[in-house]
Write a protein that binds this DNA or RNA. Structure first.
Lengths: 236, 236
DNA sequence: ACAAAAGTGTTGTACGTACACCCATGA
DNA sequence: TCATGGGTGTACGTACAACACTTTTGT
């Protein structure tokens, strides 16, 4: 449904159900109109019907020889040119009337590090403030809403916030990520203790020197990822 | 993939992807070999290839005119004859090699009350101890494993346990449900307070009289369902 | 009377929150 | 030296686990 870049390998038979894979790709960035840091995501301008001229989630038809997750990864590469630092299935949307022809969309959501996102890398791709989207094609507004809910939820009990940061980061930077996602301020002192006691961070010997007292750099402890997706490790 | 009861409305074209909907249906029951109470689920004996003679999750092909959830509900009716007291999408399984032909299965999981489940209502349907399954068709063992994980997880922060009980129940009965799902004993005193303070139960004037001191009957408070599935209310 | 489950009280620990305070650096 | 963010200490409130205890029934 959300395919925008290549020809359709699936037959468009009137009474067949087609399967699409779309991806909600989150990263942090400076918001267009304010200069706050916030959650942003890329959308693709539809160049054909249905919903020509509207913005839609990146995605494509499922190929018979391609796994669901592989399709999602491809989507990500096509729009951001980056590999996901986090990728998880979100939901399968299958209302009969969500598209003129019957389409079931398996939607993934992904995080990528904000390090180096090409500003206008790909034609017809634009990054939007997740909290201020225009009207999107199909049921994509609903989908993004749900993805945002999952992101905010998951940030509470999981360590995914690291997926938005480079390899080494200060606690203040990590806290900013949480604050942007939850859109509320957190107490620096308490934040420090929580995350230190969680055992998910490894302090390095390096410091971020800047305007004031240097802050220690931390990196993510790979060994801790438990109790996240349950028995599904590399599911597809 | 798991269709067992009606002819396939989907074309079996070699290079098309077909969409199936399967459902993991949980309830509580007396386990076959012990006489403990535990989680049980119905499976359907496959009467044709692939995997003829193996047990599989109830399910069927997605019809073009039928929503995902509707297909799941139908499945439930066909195997248990009951309406679900809880129904939620679990995951979309789409590995390329999970079936001889390419099949994407949208899997739901459901709870039904144990009140009155016909013991051998439907031909080729049998109820199994969820913790001691034989080898199932396709990747269905994995799927059940994941569904169980979700059930146990969700019982911790949600009120779904009520979905396994009749309209009125004692706190001891509710506690038994939790104990069966989590397979560990809970302190009756603490359990009482937790659930009382959660505001999800309404005490009635009736009592369950039995072998000892009568226990007050409670019923579920409909008004509390919040923070469960997020923005997806009647999604399909 | 006694066993056993229903139901109440009390205590200790863990953890989140609020906030006062010290430390180290650039300007 | 001062402003500012880095980092530590402490006190309070809530939530939960453990467990002693009282109450009410059937037998």
């Amino acid at each position: 449904m959300t395919r925008t870049t290549s020809p359709s390998p699936q037959p468009a038979t009137a009474d067949a159900t087609r399967v699409a894979v779309s991806t909600v790709i989150f990263t942090l960035g400076r918001l267009p109109d304010s200069d706050e840091i916030g959650v942003v995501l890329p959308l693709v301008l539809r160049t054909r019907d249905p919903h020509e001229g509207q913005w839609a989630l990146p995605g494509g038809w499922l190929d018979v020889t391609e796994s669901l997750e592989a399709t999602a990864s491809r989507t990500l590469a096509e729009t951001s040119g980056l590999a996901p630092s986090y990728l998880e299935q979100l939901y399968a949307f299958g209302a009969v009337d969500r598209s003129p022809t019957r389409v079931v969309s398996i939607v993934y959501w992904a995080l990528i590090r904000g390090d180096e996102i090409p500003d206008h890398s790909v034609e017809n791709v634009r990054w939007f403030d997740a909290a201020a989207l225009p009207q999107l094609a199909f049921d994509h507004n609903e989908i993004v809403e749900y993805a945002l809910w999952r992101l905010r939820n998951k940030v509470g009990y999981s360590r995914i916030a690291h997926g938005l940061l480079p390899g080494e980061f200060t606690l203040a930077e990590l806290r900013e990520v949480y604050e942007a996602i939850l859109s509320r301020r957190l107490d620096p002192a308490n934040f420090r203790r929580q995350v230190e006691n969680s055992g998910t961070l490894i302090p390095t010997d390096r410091f971020r020197t800047g305007s004031h007292r240097p802050a220690r750099l931390y990196r993510y402890n790979q060994d801790v990822e438990l109790s996240d997706r349950g028995p599904l490790g590399a599911r597809t």
